[in-house]
Design a protein around this nucleic acid. Structure first.
Lengths: 129, 129
DNA sequence: TTAGATGCAAACCCTTTGCTTGATT
DNA sequence: AATCAAGCAAAGGGTTTGCATCTAA
């Protein structure tokens, strides 16, 4: 993988923004600092890094995909109101049992994605007002 | 919810096709039997039934959403090659522990989606040839 | 009679792609 | 010099929506 200023910026911006940003949000952060960046390049780089296991993509939110610089296997929880995403780490044991359940299907399992949907503390407070 | 021929057909077709069809596939099944059906109506009805808990939507496949007439909470596994989706049922205990892990985030949890990615038995065989 | 449902087609959003130009090794 | 990456803009797929018409209750 050949060096490019764009890719470096994309990775670093993702790393320093642990909010699980969308491609679009990353673009809005990087574009002002480095105007030559194009959306196509952003998506291409994100996908490349996902393929190489350098970052992770969180799909299945019924919205734009989000990206995560934490490569370790973990789950996510998304607020249905404000869209905030937080990490959920499962115990080794739980993780093992999950895979065991899936292995009953006779599939060869490559990976999994777990997404909880809910409402975050802040949005619950706002609702109560 | 007022009766409509379209909705009845959609629900029945979903029920008799446990392959977790996409909206598009449902359309291809129903349209020939009942040509007045439009795609917009199909999507509108599917979403309505999801909201009312009569069916489930499986998102996060990096492809078209799929629909499931089984309302009971369960996970899914999708074949990365042929796209086949199968059900994965988790034990009560595992289910409870999953939710407990997520509750550590201080979110109020509404639901969850678990998707395993892998390769099905048939596709593994084909690869070996 | 009237709210809710439909059909149609256009719009939408997010993402990918083709092609030419530019940069890294 | 030879790839690989970028920029741009257009196309793509899946899904939603506005509006006029129709239909179940």
């Amino acid at each position: 993988m050949r060096y490019s200023k764009q890719r470096e910026l994309i990775y670093n911006t993702l790393k320093s923004n642990p909010c699980h940003p969308t491609a679009d949000y990353l673009y809005s952060l990087i574009k002002p600092l480095y105007p030559p960046l194009s959306l196509g390049t952003l998506y291409r780089n994100l996908n490349q890094m996902v393929e190489r296991g350098r970052i992770k993509k969180i799909s299945g939110l019924n919205q734009a995909d989000r990206f995560d610089h934490i490569v370790q296997v973990h789950a996510h929880i998304i607020c249905e109101i404000c869209g905030k995403v937080e990490d959920v780490f499962l115990s080794e044991e739980l993780s093992r049992q999950l895979n065991k359940s899936a292995e009953k299907t006779a599939f060869k399992i490559n990976r999994r994605e777990i997404i909880f949907n809910g409402i975050c503390k802040e949005c619950i407070k706002k609702q109560e007002k």
